[in-house]
Design a protein around this nucleic acid. Structure first.
Lengths: 334, 334
DNA sequence: CACCATTCCGAAAAGGTTTTCGTGACTTTC
DNA sequence: GAAAGTCACGAAAACCTTTTCGGAATGGTG
């Protein structure tokens, strides 16, 4: 910067003014400075700027498993939104699905002086711990939780799809097709999304006065869906299955096929997420679509608002999912 | 830090020494300082440290579409490896699939003073531009390209799976099953991976003295695979298809099914990547597996080496893929 | 012509750490 | 017992910006 100032024949403060678009600098001077900057390939030093302004222009993202479709899409959407808002994004993943890992990721991020944090990691328990850490360091760190447990963490603003409503949509769709009950392959209970979807499914069944079978445990993977599917296929009473996500639905479809139970002829299957591949599965999967891009934008917006205001906000921001009916569901053959 | 020093009754330099594990500080003093740090919940200021040491402890990741399985997995693997090596990772995505976008992402990263860059974005053309930018700013910025065009960019070290070899494996597998030729659904030509797989497929056919049909264009998506699949299904001469990735293979499987052409009875299909869902598709997909986690570790290792040495390295680091045979391929019924 | 506003720019402090150098105290060695 | 060496720590400079304040030049006004 000193060199630039020297070359342009001004002082370094003037260069700073040019960089920051300060009004009071003659346009002729500005041009000279800009020329010098280009000539020397000047790159402002973020560290020094951060030190002087106390603003890092960076937000932190704590992830757990970016291999899953939802989170990976979210990373993309958030980066996009952050760039447009003039922020960099730094990511820190939780090593494992437990409290210390999430805590550690947040610590690393804060150490890096991020201006705000968005978290994609699940673990209701970890959020309790986060709450504690947030109380330790009073609420000057803006944060938004994506898909966190709203009950356990009322003081953290959250944005998520309305999972219970989505599950309700799926379950009622199957009920309307005449199924006497709907079975459920659930995601891991550590994920609030999984629990909410399970609740939505339970409620929809209860409200319709139908029996609520035991849900089968899954871990979001097709492999776990396949395992659950084999169990369901063995029971001739099973005619409708709602899966916690599309990957597990893929596993269920496979298990049904192997067992010779036609989908949707004998068994109807519904997923959740609407993967890009969903229309091309065999059969094309009926599923609940959530608008990940919109969620990403919303969370970023919420974070920026908090950063600007310097005040923690609260509240749930739920977006409504849609049911996309394809060919994996049909009326119960009576 | 001043407060910590004051509380511990030492000067701030001593605190710095404790933080940086400098040897010459009496253990009793160290304990006092550590206690003070804990008491005041002291967090060292990264900006100031970066300013003083000229090291940001951050590496940059330029991505394009983290929605695709490969890249999203890679982000995960790299973050993991980076953390273990003591680095933060900051991501910047290219807005579009062209030169200025990639260039801009790199500029943003460099502005942020990252110590090195790993790029997951494709576009051979963009890499040419990157080469230019690297010459503008002489090689003090360590970099590694994942899946870049090795011919166009010999001076940038790269790590990738041996795509041509993988494509050869797949194609020869089909040839060995008696197929008279193998059709190909290719990824977008902007991606070097797609071009290398295409070349591997061509070579394998030529080497076997078989005719090389026109490849069908795809964009990695199941949708594009489906479109290509419909065209292939309409041609009764088609008995074997090698797809540039698993998603497109999903689309092809669907198209074959709709057209009433049994897989693998009438047509054999091979994919590339080995998605976690691949074993649960209908039929379970024969595909080429690449070890994404290993690739992530390797690229990080290469980057760290460069950062430590302060010298740009070059060379290709190829890892060998495996063919995973499942049920979507079978011998040609003669 | 003197005075005031306004515009443009420089001087200097501040931000929090690392690092080099120096100093005093203590230990070793012949 | 003195010289040499080691250890623990403090003083101060350096890293590169931003920002506040004040000064100088310019232009306009009474």
């Amino acid at each position: 910067m000193r060199d630039v100032a020297h070359l342009a024949g001004v002082s370094h403060q003037t260069v700073s003014r040019v960089v920051n678009d300060h009004p009071s600098v003659r346009s002729e001077t500005r041009a000279r400075v800009l020329a010098a900057m280009r000539a020397l390939d000047y790159q402002p030093n973020v560290a020094a700027r951060t030190l002087a302004t106390n603003r890092s222009q960076t937000i932190g993202l704590v992830t757990f498993d970016t291999t899953l479709f939802g989170p990976s899409f979210m990373v993309h959407a958030i980066e996009r939104a952050a760039r447009e808002a003039g922020y960099f994004v730094s990511i820190a993943s939780a090593r494992e699905l437990n409290v210390p890992s999430v805590h550690d990721a947040i610590r690393r991020l804060r150490e890096q002086a991020v201006e705000g944090i968005i978290t994609l990691a699940p673990v209701a328990a970890a959020w309790t711990a986060l709450g504690r850490s947030l109380l330790d360091v009073p609420a000057h760190v803006p944060i938004v939780g994506m898909g966190i447990d709203a009950h356990a963490m009322p003081e953290v603003p959250m944005v998520a799809v309305d999972n219970a409503a989505g599950a309700g949509l799926a379950t009622r769709h199957l009920i309307a097709l005449g199924h006497r009950t709907v079975h459920h392959v659930a995601g891991p209970p550590e994920w609030p999304e999984a629990r909410e979807r399970m609740e939505g499914w339970q409620c929809a069944l209860s409200d319709a006065g139908l029996p609520v079978p035991q849900a089968l445990p899954g871990d979001w993977s097709a492999r776990s869906g396949y395992a659950a599917g084999r169990a369901l296929a063995a029971d001739p009473a099973v005619t409708a299955v709602f899966c916690g996500n599309d990957q597990m639905a893929i596993g269920v479809l496979r298990a049904m096929h192997e067992a010779g139970r036609a989908v949707p002829g004998a068994v109807s299957v519904v997923g959740f997420d609407d993967l890009p591949e969903a229309p091309y599965l065999q059969p094309p999967l009926t599923t609940v679509r959530q608008d990940f891009a919109e969620l990403g934008r919303r969370s970023m917006h919420l974070l920026v608002t908090q950063i600007a205001a310097g005040v923690r906000q609260t509240g749930q921001h739920r977006s409504a999912p849609d049911l996309v009916v394809r060919e994996s569901t049909s009326a119960l053959a009576s």
